[in-house]
């Protein structure tokens, strides 16, 4: 039964800015291991949607449910309890617990998602320390391992991200967001502003981590190539509404909506 329940379930959700809806009537389900791309241009409502899903903005209509895991029992591992939460009912404490244990958020601008004056190791170690890790050696070893996984040279562990390139900063951000083993990761244009080769490398890394860790990901992007490379399913948004959704290759190869056809045909061909 648990396999049948989606990890994240969005039902006709929308967020209002005063009189105007930033996004409206959005519905989809997401299962572990799936990457969902939300594609649209500026003003499409994709960032509003991401904000609403991640609880930074309220869901003014509709409902968003999340299947949380808490481990009970003295040994921890075997007694896993799943509970379906209506996110609107959560207290701030519960939301913050989700952010520490089950959710990650990769910002477009790494400086928003990192402490720029703290070392790379400290940035990656912080979620562990927030979750009660109290052994310096273990924290450092785990941070080192994760920096290695995102291909940051080990000798940079004590350097602050302000000395890193944009691509490296994003990789530190990814490590920081994965170190505590989340199940759902939100990404807001994680590769925009980066050089093309850097983008490719970063997307490749994200893709392999998603497969390896069985993560569910919601990634907002304006770049269809990013959606194609990394996502299984795509939502296309325009003016706050979802105009098309489905398998990514179907949406991009056989677009049905006029707007999607326009987007696809607008991709610059080299």
């Amino acid at each position: 039964m648990i396999d049948e329940t989606p990890l994240l379930s969005v039902d006709a959700a929308g967020h209002r800015y005063g009189d105007r809806f930033g996004c409206r009537d959005v519905s989809f389900d997401l299962w572990p291991g799936e990457v969902l791309a939300v594609v649209g241009e500026s003003g499409s409502g994709k960032s509003t949607l991401l904000g609403m899903l991640s609880q930074r903005l309220s869901a003014d209509e509709g409902r968003i449910s999340y299947l949380t895991t808490s481990e009970n029992g003295p040994e921890g591992a075997q007694d896993t309890v799943h509970a379906l939460l209506d996110l609107a009912t959560l207290s701030e404490r519960e939301v913050r617990r989700l952010w520490r244990t089950e959710w990650g958020f990769v910002h477009q601008n790494a400086a928003d998602g990192l402490r720029m004056h703290v070392s790379a190791g400290g940035n990656v170690g912080e979620p562990l320390m927030a979750n009660g890790w109290r052994h310096y050696g273990s924290i450092r070893a785990e941070a080192e391992a994760w920096l290695g996984r995102v291909e940051i040279p080990a000798e940079r562990i004590d350097d602050s991200p302000s000395t890193f390139s944009g691509g490296m900063r994003q990789r530190v951000q990814i490590a920081r967001n994965l170190v505590f083993g989340p199940r759902l990761v939100f990404m807001d244009e994680p590769t925009s502003g980066l050089d093309v080769s850097v983008q490719a490398r970063l997307l490749d890394l994200i893709r392999s981590l998603v497969t390896e860790l069985g993560l569910a990901v919601v990634i907002v992007t304006h770049d269809l190539a990013v959606a194609r490379l990394i996502s299984h399913r795509t939502l296309v948004m325009k003016d706050g509404a979802v105009v098309e959704s489905g398998l990514t290759d179907r949406v991009l190869d056989d677009p049905q909506a006029a707007y999607t056809q326009l987007l696809v045909s607008s991709i610059l061909q080299g």
Binding site: R96, R100, V118, S119, G122, M129, A130, Y136, R140, D158
Partner: peptide
């Protein structure tokens, strides 16, 4: 939520 306090101590040790 006192993780940040330990970050400071971590940084000192590093």
């Amino acid at each position: 939520e006192y993780g940040l306090m330990y970050v400071k101590l971590y940084e000192d040790i590093a």
